[in-house]
Design a protein around this nucleic acid. Structure first.
Length: 110
DNA sequence: AAGGTGACCGGCC
DNA sequence: TGGCCGGCCACCT
């Protein structure tokens, strides 16, 4: 019974689940939608916990540079990249190619 | 209770 | 884009 699940975390999960297939977004974008653009780090932290949940496609979340900064936290070393490429996203050297092209702004959802 | 940490971001060069 | 620095806030020990 994880009472540690505050609303903040659920918020992040909710947005992360809204990420369409073959699209990605940044931590800052999610944080901004949550109304805490300065707490972008918290989004990453939430993702750390989300990594336990299968409902949250953490692999679709990267930093604003399009770098797979969190790939290090996945099981395999390039599991994250594999997943992204599996969705049609081109990744090279831990960096997403055509980042803006596959970027999905969660705010437009609202 | 206090301090350290972090899957970041924005500004500057 | 890349490197450096400061800010920011919840979580963990």
């Amino acid at each position: 019974m994880e009472l540690t699940n505050d609303n903040f975390f659920e918020r992040v999960y909710a947005v992360a689940r809204q990420i369409p297939y073959g699209k990605v977004t940044s931590y800052g974008a999610i944080a901004k939608v949550l109304g805490a653009a300065r707490s972008a780090r918290m989004v990453g932290w939430a993702m750390n916990a989300a990594h336990n949940l299968e409902d949250v496609p953490a692999h679709r979340v990267v930093n604003r540079k399009g770098l797979l900064t969190g790939k290090h936290h996945f099981d395999g070393t390039n599991l994250m990249q594999q997943l992204l490429e599996s969705e049609g996203i081109v990744v090279e050297d831990n960096q997403i190619i055509n980042f803006e092209d596959v970027f999905w702004d969660p705010q437009m959802k609202f």
